[in-house]
Amino acid sequence: MFELRLVQGSLLKKVLESIKDLVNDANFDCSSTGFSLQAMDSSHVALVALLLRSEGFEHYRCDRNLTMGMNLANMAKMLKCAGNDDIITIKADDGTDTVTFMFESPSQDKISDFEMKLMDIDSEHLGIPEAEYEAIIRMPSAEFARICRDLSSIGDTVVISVTKEGVRFSARGDIGAANIVCRQNATVDKPEDATIIEMQEPVTLTFALRYMNSFTKATPLAEQVTISMSSDLPVVVEYKVAGMGYIRYYLAPKIEE
């Protein structure tokens, strides 16, 4: 039997909104560690890794490891039926091919349950080694989303370049070119407004903006985003999930031939 209960159900709604456009079907892995997912987009260019640790839930029971294959669009449809203040419980019994989502209003006067069919999904689980990154940028997530959105009206790709001057986001297209430079700014009133750049080596990498824009769907989850880059490695764009885990997006760079 598997059961988890999350009082702040809106977190789960936001998590689904953050991954459903990138991935159609995915296996959720349930273990004593927590509720996790690793899935690639259909073109194998981007990967999303989600971890919600068991300690982060008000109740978490996982008698044995379980993989639940779900269609994310359908799961998002069901979670949309939960109110933002609702408590969400996810339940699956051993040997059944369904999962139940239960939503309780804060005052307990409305309780709904939605049952969804599970799927068998053949998924390739990639081994992602721990890496030391040459440059790590921490910045306000809304600022990063704004930059990706603005640059996608200029071009299809973004060049991200980290030097000791700061981080430069550049795009070029038929109508012209754009450069946005963010400098380190640690002297802000609120830590969530800070931009911190840790650089061992200067790095310049090029990425498809379509994917970056899709990653920024996670912006409502966290005030800050962390972008980790090394030459010729996929970038990691990470959003923390309220002290209980993270969503990490990996994106392969474009290489000039």
Partner: peptide, 14 residues
């Protein structure tokens, strides 16, 4: 010409 690489060039399949 820009070539879009895929993730399996960087990460291993089990």
């Amino acid at each position: 010409l820009w070539l879009q690489r895929i993730l399996v060039l960087y990460f291993s399949l089990p």
